[in-house]
Simulated scan of single mutants.
Amino acid sequence: MKTKLMFVMLLVFFTTIASYAQITKVEIMATGLTCSMCSNAINKQLKTLPEVERVSTDLNTNTFTVHLKKENQITPLILKQKVEKAGFFVGSMIVTLTLNHSKWENSVAITPEGSTYVFLDQKTNPGKEEVAVKVMDKGFITPKEYKKTAKALSKYPTYAAGDAKTFHVKMM
């Protein structure tokens, strides 16, 4: 009986402190590209993911817009690893999240696969069902930008923990 009560209490606690989110689109600006063949390598890697519906590329800005299927289980880390597998780096990653519940406390959103998004300096509900956020963790922004923001990020306990499933994001 105590176990069931504890489980219900934990369930209620976690549903009140977090909003659930689903990734619908990701814009990845890659660095290190020199030609269209480089772009093609990244494009092929991204398309190997079963969650990817389509990928469009802007060669002028080296940006890959990845449209994802509904109910996907993808994380920014998986996309980053695909870009790196092609031999390049992520200079910027903007993730479009659909917030499925209106509960919003402690600036946290959790995806069905267990990834956590910590919204930096965002204390209230953004007031939208769909939000675009920029991932600010190391490896998701340029080294120069990371150097500028690392000190500010260090004030978040989740950042110091270094969990691969926790992403620190800034509203766009």
Rank of each mutant, 00 (worst) to 15 (best):
K2R: 13
T3A: 13
L5I: 11
F7D: 04
V8M: 09
V8P: 03
F14I: 14
T16Y: 09
A18L: 08
S19E: 07
S19V: 02
A21C: 02
A21M: 02
A21R: 01
Q22A: 13
V26H: 03
V26S: 01
E27N: 09
M29Y: 07
G32K: 10
G32Y: 09
G32V: 11
T34V: 14
C35P: 06
S36C: 11
M37G: 09
C38I: 14
S39C: 06
N40H: 07
N40T: 15
A41K: 15
I42C: 06
K44C: 00
L46V: 12
L46S: 03
K47T: 11
K47W: 01
T48Y: 05
P50S: 14
E51S: 11
V52C: 14
E53K: 12
R54T: 10
R54K: 13
V55K: 08
T57N: 13
D58F: 04
L59V: 10
N60Q: 12
T61P: 00
N62G: 08
T63R: 13
T63S: 08
F64R: 10
T65K: 03
V66Q: 06
H67S: 11
K69W: 00
K69F: 01
K70C: 02
E71M: 01
N72R: 02
I74H: 04
I74R: 03
Q81G: 04
V83N: 12
V83D: 12
V83A: 11
K85G: 07
K85L: 11
V90M: 04
S92D: 07
S92Q: 11
S92K: 13
M93P: 06
I94H: 05
L97Y: 02
T98M: 00
L99N: 01
N100M: 12
H101D: 14
S102P: 00
N106C: 08
S107E: 07
V108F: 08
A109R: 04
A109I: 00
I110G: 06
T111G: 13
T111A: 15
T111C: 08
P112I: 10
G114L: 09
S115W: 01
L120Y: 02
D121V: 03
D121G: 00
K123H: 14
K123V: 05
N125Q: 05
P126C: 06
K128P: 02
E129H: 10
E130T: 15
E130A: 09
V131K: 05
A132I: 05
A132K: 12
A132P: 01
K134Q: 12
K134I: 11
K134W: 01
V135F: 05
M136K: 09
G139E: 08
F140E: 11
T142G: 00
K144G: 00
K144D: 14
Y146E: 01
Y146S: 07
Y146D: 05
Y146V: 04
T149D: 08
A150I: 02
A150E: 13
K155Y: 04
P157N: 06
A164T: 15
K165Q: 15
K165W: 11
F167P: 04
H168D: 08
V169C: 04
V169T: 07
M171I: 12
M171H: 03
M171F: 05
M171G: 06
M172P: 10
M172E: 15
